[in-house]
Amino acid sequence: MQKDSKIYIAGHRGLVGSALVRELLAQGYTNLVYRTHAQMDLQNQAAVEEFFACERPEYVFLAAAKVGGILANSTYPADFIYSNLSIQNNIISLAHKYQVKKLLFLGSSCIYPKNCPQPIKEEYLLTGELEPTNDAYAIAKIAGIKMCQAYNKQYGTDFISVMPTNLYGPNDNFDLNSSHVLPALMRKFHEAKVNKQDKVVVWGTGKPIREFLYADDLAAACVYLMNSYSDDKIVNIGTGIGITIKELAEAMAKVVGFEGQLEFDTTKPDGTMVKINDVSYLKTLGWQAKIELITGLQMAYKWYLENVDEAN
């Protein structure tokens, strides 16, 4: 990408999209384009085509998606599969039609089989059954990967796909009914501290092991790959380091300053017991994460305090 290349960030207000905007601006890219949902519904093909015909972006970061945690995915599977298929079908097909030079599609580590070996290698895709609590979302994302590969094969496009691990940071979703575990815990501990509660209830046993990546690290990886990588092989992005939910909760309590007790609600689902991305391929490509978890939690909580009204 040239510094004045026209770059479209789909989903620029979200966790990933806003991090991409920050990273691109920090690196001196000057010609970024985006639209709010009110300005353009990405599920409306005619509206998206009008945008591509008018703006003619040279590069596209496809960070727009309907996302959520276990509760949201379990409750609204039809919404998750329809919305995500619609968004990515429109953008990928029109990126080809309007001759976009390169597109980066953001998937998720939840695309991998529920019981695949750990850490998760890229080649484990489609080797087993999916986690049932988010299979609708995962199938949509897998379809996006296959669509990028199909366009590359049939039309010679340069569409690449990356699979980030669990993300967190500024502009995260803190709605307790639809958020992922880390922002949900941040809000729970913050509100418990403010309301002087003596305990916080955490879903599940606390035993599952997860990996967490600060959104700005992901953005840096995406810009790096957009400038240096062209291949059908998907690329895992993460830290490669796991932590139990119990350890995460304890770290979060310390960052927030909550001094009460933790209680684990074992009637709630744990989901997959271990999920860590193997990031050795990414390292061979010349990139690795820089922001350690405790530093990232401190930065994310600082943002939450400054934007708590908007976040809630």
Rank of each mutant, 00 (worst) to 15 (best):
2 Q>Y: 08
3 K>T: 10
8 Y>W: 15
9 I>E: 00
10 A>K: 03
17 G>P: 06
18 S>Q: 08
18 S>A: 14
21 V>Y: 00
22 R>Y: 12
29 Y>R: 06
30 T>V: 13
36 T>W: 07
37 H>P: 01
39 Q>P: 11
42 L>T: 05
43 Q>K: 15
48 V>S: 03
50 E>N: 14
54 C>K: 15
62 L>Q: 06
67 V>Y: 11
67 V>D: 10
69 G>N: 07
70 I>G: 02
70 I>L: 15
71 L>P: 02
71 L>E: 10
73 N>P: 12
74 S>T: 14
78 A>N: 12
82 Y>G: 00
98 Y>S: 07
106 L>H: 02
107 G>H: 01
114 K>V: 03
114 K>E: 06
118 Q>V: 07
119 P>L: 05
121 K>S: 10
123 E>N: 15
124 Y>W: 07
126 L>K: 15
126 L>N: 14
132 P>R: 01
132 P>M: 04
133 T>P: 00
134 N>Q: 13
136 A>W: 01
145 I>D: 12
148 C>V: 08
148 C>H: 10
149 Q>M: 10
150 A>P: 00
151 Y>G: 04
153 K>R: 14
155 Y>P: 00
158 D>S: 14
159 F>I: 05
164 P>T: 08
166 N>L: 12
170 P>E: 05
176 L>C: 02
184 A>R: 01
185 L>Y: 13
190 H>Q: 04
201 V>F: 10
201 V>C: 09
205 T>A: 05
208 P>H: 09
209 I>D: 00
213 L>H: 09
219 A>K: 07
229 Y>P: 13
230 S>N: 13
233 K>L: 10
243 I>H: 03
259 E>V: 13
259 E>R: 14
260 G>Q: 09
263 E>D: 11
266 T>G: 04
269 P>D: 11
270 D>W: 09
281 Y>L: 08
283 K>L: 10
297 L>V: 09
297 L>W: 11
298 Q>I: 12
299 M>Q: 15
303 W>F: 14
304 Y>E: 04
310 E>N: 11
312 N>P: 00
